[in-house]
Design a protein around this nucleic acid. Structure first.
Length: 595
RNA sequence: ACUUCCGUAGCUCAGCGGAAUAGAGCAUCCCACUUCUAAUGGGACGGUCGCAGGUUCGAUUCCUGCCGGAAGUACCA
């Protein structure tokens, strides 16, 4: 039981006994005591003032007296206005620490067979270009969210839906046939996803030239875009693809395999993975079936031109197209199909889609449609919506070539980590292998932490320079603290020190602050899981590290201190390291023992 | 035009189930290395919490309106 629970509980009893009011522990508002007052935690007593018909100070005093008398964890109190500042019995904190250290898998709850089965979809790339900074945010959020949900006792299935079909793929395929036939990633010395991306750009270049030529001949822009020979050719290719033309399919499979190999390398380096991957080429026909089923049930309707729509005006939304007049699927139809397959594959209780906020409307509609089509989790599906990543100089625009490529970005981060670390002499005495590992962990840690510490819903500015700043609220700062604690513990072990009994040591303010912080961890994880917010974990671990640094700065840990005092300090260091590693693991960030 | 989200220090961000003088980091300035990793710690400077109303004993937090920014309202994905 946490200290907050103990106090809430005692206060609720106090209010009940003093004023005969019904007060549940959850109704008690606790906050950290301001540092200019004495106390560890503060109860806000305003809520009971009116009913008690007494002044705020009187109420606070009466509750305070009750607590001192009836709750042994409470040592003393002071009442300031309507605020009751409570001082916890100092020795009590040591037992809190004891409890923390003896808890298996501290802060995490093991899932059982009956735990909710949650599916998290993230990444969801197109196969016509490599991953960029926006995908990086998506991947990190998705992975971290999955980790957090697992820690909260859910069974989690990480999934990815690959958009491997459509006109955009045909464009890359066509460009390859025209201007690159025979070229492979091996021959080009390039990752497959980058190679395909190049062909996509090449297509666009030639296509634009054609459009311009047609417009110069007096054609309107729209017409030119539709009549350009390359576009006609791409559409024809898509038709052949849908008819399963062996030649087109073969080319498609070969080029997709290049892309997947490229993606896999990026995912692997980023440290994210999936339990199950779906491909739209497999799901888009399923959606069609489901929509026709809905048509029979009267959930959808058909227009004169043959197109199928859903009327969502009763839910305050629009009419939504689900099948084109030629019977082909749109994006929404595919998502319905994917949902169907997933439901067949797993008895999921909850579905979470990690997708950018430009698709908020899409998911509102999807939720409604799935619900009407009878998916039990449809109504409560979660669209984990996140904002765009912008650059200091503005938005990323593929047209202007300002898109930050994921692979380049990771290289840059790791290179910077290497140069900064070596300038500081931190890499001295490490083997080449160790240096690579350390730089990789730090560089990626910097990137991940920078992207995860911000509230996902908000658009954010990614400043490469600032992200590589190893001071302040950054990943490396946290990793560094971890490494330093490891060093302390190594030193203690080398000197033959052990953690003995510290139950009679009265912890000082720095120690107490640290124990409190450590004690918060399970609640932080639970809340992050509730609100789907990796940022809360990130901000927590930063706070923890700051608190530890203050403690570290003030006292010698392995010095010639009294053995019991040293035991407490070692125990605190050790436990802090564990919690840091655990929290960073929830964020998908690695640690190193030396840096 | 309509819908949704955002607007907190010079910059990047916390906080907001309402509650005591609004919190960090970066940047600027000062202090502390005979200390287990100074990639540190302490301090100063810096805010009419977009604006205006409302509810409340009390609003950065809840409600309404306005202003500013972003996104979405496709037989694109």
């Amino acid at each position: 039981m946490s200290i907050d629970n103990i106090i809430s509980d005692a206060v609720s009893r106090a209010v009940g006994s003093l004023y005969s009011l019904d007060c549940k522990p959850d109704d008690v508002v606790l906050q950290a005591t301001r540092k200019d007052f004495e106390g560890d935690t503060t109860v806000v007593v305003f809520p009971w003032v009116k009913a008690a018909r007494k002044s705020p100070v009187t109420v606070a005093t009466e509750i305070g007296d009750f607590l001192v008398e009836n709750e042994k964890a409470v040592k003393s109190y002071n009442a300031v206005g309507g605020f009751l500042n409570i001082v916890i019995e100092p020795l009590y904190w040591n037992s809190v620490l004891d409890h923390i250290t003896s808890t298996d898998n501290y802060g995490k709850i093991e899932a059982t067979e009956n735990s909710p089965l949650v599916m998290v979809e993230y990444s969801s790339p197109n196969t016509n270009k490599p991953l960029h900074l926006g995908h990086v945010r998506n991947n990190l959020l998705g992975y971290s969210l999955s980790q957090i949900l697992k820690a909260c006792g859910n069974r989690v299935i990480k999934t990815n839906i690959v958009n491997d079909r459509g006109i955009h793929i045909c464009k890359s395929m066509l460009a390859w046939k025209h201007w690159g036939e025979g070229i492979t990633p091996e021959k080009a010395g390039k990752k497959g996803d980058h190679l395909i991306g190049d062909f996509y750009v090449l297509f666009d270049k030639h296509y634009k030239a054609e459009v311009k030529e047609l417009m110069d001949k007096g054609m309107s822009e729209d017409e030119a875009k539709n009549q350009a020979p390359l576009m006609l050719e791409a559409r024809e290719m898509l038709r052949r693809w849908e008819q399963k033309d062996p030649e087109v399919r073969q080319l498609w499979e070969m080029m997709n395999s290049w892309v997947y190999a490229g993606f896999d390398a990026t995912y692997c380096r980023l440290g994210v993975d999936f339990d199950k991957i779906y491909y739209e080429s497999d799901t888009y026909l399923e959606g069609k079936e489901k929509v026709l089923e809905g048509l029979e049930k009267g959930i959808m309707y058909r227009r004169e031109d043959g197109s199928v729509w859903a009327d969502l005006t009763d839910a305050g939304l629009d009419h939504k197209l689900l099948l084109r007049s030629d019977g082909t699927s749109v994006y929404m139809t595919q998502d319905i199909g994917t949902a169907k397959l997933r439901y067949q594959d797993y008895p999921i209780d909850k579905m979470i889609y990690v997708v950018g906020n430009e698709q908020n409307y899409h998911f509102q509609v999807l939720s409604l449609l799935l619900d009407r089509l009878g998916f039990k989790w449809g109504k409560d599906l979660v669209h984990f919506s996140y904002g765009m990543v912008e650059l200091p100089e503005g938005k990323m625009k593929s047209r202007e070539g300002t898109v930050v490529d994921a692979d380049d970005l990771m290289d840059e981060m790791v290179n910077t980590a290497r140069s900064v670390s070596s300038d500081l002499g931190k890499l001295d005495g490490l083997s080449t292998e160790e240096i690579e590992k350390v730089c990789e962990t730090i560089g990626l840690g910097a990137l991940k932490y920078f992207l995860l510490k911000v509230d996902p819903r908000k658009n954010m500015t990614f400043n490469p320079k600032e992200s590589i700043d190893f001071n302040g609220n950054t990943g490396p700062f946290i990793q560094y603290t971890y490494a330093r604690i490891c060093s302390v513990m190594r030193r203690a072990t080398d000197a033959g020190m052990t953690i003995g009994d510290y139950s009679q040591v009265i912890p000082g303010p720095r120690e107490t602050a640290l124990i409190k912080r450590l004690a918060d961890y399970p609640a932080v994880v639970a809340q992050a899981g509730n609100e789907y917010s990796p940022a809360q974990v990130a901000n927590y671990v930063y706070d923890l590290v700051k608190t530890y640094n203050q403690f570290y700065h003030d006292c010698s840990i392995t010095g010639e201190a009294d053995e019991a005092v040293r035991s407490l300090r070692l125990r605190l260091s050790d436990q802090t390291a564990r919690v840091i590693a655990s929290a960073l693991d929830l964020l998908g960030i690695g640690v190193v023992q030396r840096m």
